[in-house]
Design a protein around this nucleic acid. Structure first.
Lengths: 104, 104
DNA sequence: GATAGTGCTTCCTTTTTGGTAAGTATATTG
DNA sequence: CAATATACTTACCAAAAAGGAAGCACTATC
């Protein structure tokens, strides 16, 4: 995938989900396809560079699809692949844990 | 926790679980307490510095406990707290996803 | 007396990641 | 006619994370 060696499935999954933006993008796409600018608005602190860079990575990893409508001004939509969609159970657990943790 | 602002529970959880070693250490402790040297053997590529640094962080975050037996040679055990243990459902999902993904 | 094992810490270097600003091309809006 | 919005990319710089090597205090073993 990126040349690294993963000693266990958890390590592998973390490499897909663990970056600064990777997980949040997958989570943001849970409700269906979104455009670049919609993602940008939702992931408050992300900048153009990080967003396009991370989307590219996720596309290479087979987690999101990229659909370019070839229009002017540009319109590009991102969506989860089946593999990406299957990550969502992980994030549901994360959401539950995080919500509980911040109450403590 | 570390000064950063988390806009959602998922973001918060990722900050606990998403580092290079944090998640793997939690996962390695799933079967019960382990000593420093046992963790080191299990997490093949980790070095002393990263391991002790990450364990310290996890302890500060309330994910692991540290028990120093005050013996010579030193014996120190690490274990998951209740909060840490509740992270395990996340890793179980990660394991399933990673195992499936690497078959594709 | 040298070596190994224990659980660290410190210093230094390298790698990775993140951020800022600008540029691209075109159409719409005021 | 200037500004705005779209989805990027590129070049450059700063910050953060990770890695490596060595050392420490102490004991037991060879």
């Amino acid at each position: 995938m990126n040349g690294a060696i993963y000693y266990c499935p958890v390590d592998l999954t973390l490499s897909v989900v663990g970056g600064r933006w990777q997980g949040l993008i997958v989570w943001a796409l849970r409700g269906g396809p979104k455009r670049f600018s919609e993602l940008k608005r939702e992931l408050v602190a992300v900048n153009d560079k990080m967003l396009s860079q991370t989307l590219k990575l996720l596309a290479e990893q087979g987690i999101v699809t990229r659909t370019d409508f070839q229009s002017v001004p540009p319109k590009v939509e991102y969506n989860l692949t089946e593999n990406g969609r299957q990550l969502l159970v992980i994030f549901e657990k994360m959401e539950a844990w995080g919500a509980h943790y911040s109450e403590v």
